[in-house]
């Protein structure tokens, strides 16, 4: 059984663009940390510039590590409608998985994140996530 508090699942959410989504995450994070919304957004944008964050067709994995985070989180966002143009190179995004890692996180939590990552290397698993039709089944796929 997975540690439920690590995961934040948002099913069938509507976001118009990258900045819309990053802003939302930034605000969320700012409530639970000493990070400002703009800091979170900047960090995410910087990561995107440093290297491609796309991990499969329709799927992105923005992630960063910070000492200002109080706890690590995985935020999985299943989009109600695809974001047709994410940035210059990336388009048609339906699933965004945020990894927000607290610096010097415990080994147990890191392992948990790692296990989830390994699942994401499996194209079948990705397909299932993309095509999930209810919040319940979607959550189950992730938590169990």
């Amino acid at each position: 059984m997975k540690n439920k508090s690590l995961f934040n699942i948002l099913f069938h959410r509507k976001f118009d663009s990258r900045s819309d989504m990053y802003h939302f995450i930034g605000e969320r994070v700012s409530h639970h940390s000493t990070l400002l919304t703009s800091e979170v957004v900047d960090t995410l944008l910087q990561r995107e510039q440093a290297g491609n964050i796309q991990i499969a067709e329709h799927v992105l994995l923005p992630h960063f590590e910070s000492s200002k985070l109080k706890e690590s989180q995985i935020v999985v966002v299943h989009l109600h409608e695809a974001i047709s143009k994410w940035n210059q190179h990336v388009s048609d995004i339906k699933l965004v998985i945020f990894i927000l890692l607290k610096r010097d996180e415990t080994l147990d939590t890191k392992k948990e994140i790692t296990n989830f990552m390994r699942n994401l290397a499996d194209q079948d698993y990705i397909e299932k996530l993309l095509h999930a039709d209810s919040e319940e089944s979607f959550t189950q796929m992730i938590i169990q």
Binding site: G51, L61, H63, F64, E65, K110, M117, A121
Partner: peptide
């Protein structure tokens, strides 16, 4: 490597192991 050492890098590790047996992944780090 990736920024966190647990994000894309961990994912990559699985794919590398599957596709490149001639590479031995020593560790995944930030």
């Amino acid at each position: 490597m990736c920024t966190t050492g647990v994000g894309t890098s961990e994912l990559l590790k699985v794919k590398i192991k599957k596709n490149f047996p001639e590479l031995e992944v020593v560790d995944v780090v930030s």
